[in-house]
Simulated assay, not measured.
Amino acid sequence: MFTRIALFLATNLAVLFLASIVMSLLGVSPDQMAGLLVLGAMFGFGGSLVSLLTSKWMAKRATGAHVITQPRSEAERWLVDTVRRQAQAAGIGMPEVAIYDAPEINAFATGANRNNALVAVSTGLLRNMSADEAEAVLGHEIAHVANGDMVTMALLQGVLNTFVIVLARVVGGIVDGYLSGNREGEGRGMAYFAIVLVLEMVFGLFATMIAMWFSRRREFRADAGGAQLAGRHKMIAALEKLALNHGHSTLPNQIAAFGIAGGMGEGLRRLFLSHPPLAERIAALRASAAA
């Protein structure tokens, strides 16, 4: 995981360095650029890292999930035993296992560390899925943890946030200077801040598209991981059961991207989906079996 983080940060530092060169060509001084990068990184990465570090606590609080410390039923014992077996097979530490009350079929995994994660399932999943289907869903969530998806998403979001903050201010300064006739000696007025606000919203939309594109790709990888841990036919059956449920999710926004359900939308809305359509996920699994 640390190698993944180091390579990810190194790549994005190189991108930021290239951006600083481009900004200098646009007339942004090195001191201004350094200040903007520090500001952008503080706010961009700060929020993402705080969200990552508090993700387990927030998920429990938002869903009212009950962590199984001592199984009270056969269903709870099966959940804990299945997660333990899959975690060992995936080479990660034993996650906390929890159940939250919700009518839809869903589950999620979160946590800042692959050896100290949380895997939670809904009561609707326990009521409506067979043991084989539920095993596949758990495998999917364990694969998310093993792949380090929560950390990677936080780092990606931090980089995107930084670019949004920096680019909005650089471009805003250029536009404001053009509109004001590049008059020297005048501070930034309300027009500059209004331009920056609009640009942050516009650039933020593009940043969201990039983050959601990556989120959709990681769902395919987690499906493949779930198929490896539980069996391909079980993973396909679980996704087909989710399709009958129309992929409906009532998870709070901050953890919805980490649930297994989701992926409904057409046209431009598709660009903002955290999950691919279930039909595409099922087709991908069947295609990999035929390959």
Score class of each variant (00 low, 15 high):
residue 225 G to M: 14
residue 253 N to D: 02
residue 239 L to K: 06
residue 232 R to Y: 10
residue 241 K to R: 15
residue 249 S to M: 00
residue 241 K to A: 15
residue 238 A to D: 08
residue 236 I to R: 11
residue 250 T to C: 02
residue 253 N to V: 13
residue 228 Q to R: 13
residue 262 G to V: 09
residue 246 H to Q: 09
residue 245 N to M: 14
residue 225 G to A: 11
residue 251 L to S: 02
residue 259 G to F: 04
residue 245 N to C: 11
residue 244 L to C: 00
residue 231 G to I: 13
residue 251 L to W: 11
residue 254 Q to W: 00
residue 242 L to P: 00
residue 265 G to M: 10
residue 259 G to E: 02
residue 236 I to Y: 05
residue 228 Q to N: 06
residue 233 H to N: 12
residue 262 G to W: 12
residue 227 A to C: 00
residue 256 A to P: 00
residue 230 A to V: 15
residue 227 A to V: 09
residue 230 A to T: 11
residue 261 A to D: 06
residue 243 A to W: 01
residue 229 L to N: 12
residue 250 T to L: 03
residue 264 M to H: 12
residue 226 G to M: 04
residue 254 Q to K: 03
residue 229 L to E: 09
residue 228 Q to M: 07
residue 225 G to W: 07
residue 234 K to L: 09
residue 267 G to K: 08
residue 263 G to M: 04
residue 264 M to W: 08
residue 242 L to D: 03
residue 226 G to V: 11
residue 230 A to E: 03
residue 235 M to D: 07
residue 256 A to I: 00
residue 266 E to P: 01
residue 263 G to T: 12
residue 244 L to V: 13
residue 245 N to H: 09
residue 262 G to N: 03
residue 238 A to N: 10
residue 232 R to P: 02
residue 259 G to K: 08
residue 225 G to F: 07
residue 260 I to L: 05
residue 240 E to D: 13
residue 251 L to M: 01
residue 239 L to W: 01
residue 255 I to T: 06
residue 259 G to N: 08
residue 267 G to D: 08
residue 234 K to Q: 14
residue 231 G to E: 04
residue 240 E to P: 05
residue 257 A to F: 04
residue 236 I to E: 14
residue 249 S to H: 10
residue 263 G to E: 04
residue 240 E to Q: 15
residue 235 M to T: 11
residue 234 K to E: 15
residue 263 G to C: 07
residue 266 E to C: 03
residue 262 G to C: 07
residue 266 E to Q: 02
residue 252 P to Q: 06
residue 245 N to T: 14
residue 237 A to Y: 10
residue 261 A to T: 10
residue 244 L to K: 14
residue 251 L to N: 03
residue 265 G to N: 13
residue 230 A to K: 08
residue 232 R to S: 03
residue 258 F to S: 13
residue 245 N to V: 15
residue 233 H to G: 10
residue 246 H to M: 03
residue 258 F to Q: 05
residue 244 L to W: 06
residue 242 L to Q: 01
residue 259 G to T: 13
residue 248 H to P: 00
residue 240 E to K: 14
residue 226 G to Y: 07
residue 262 G to S: 10
residue 257 A to C: 05
residue 228 Q to I: 14
residue 263 G to Y: 02
residue 243 A to G: 00
residue 262 G to Y: 12
residue 259 G to W: 02
residue 227 A to H: 04
residue 250 T to D: 01
residue 239 L to C: 06
residue 239 L to P: 12
residue 266 E to S: 14
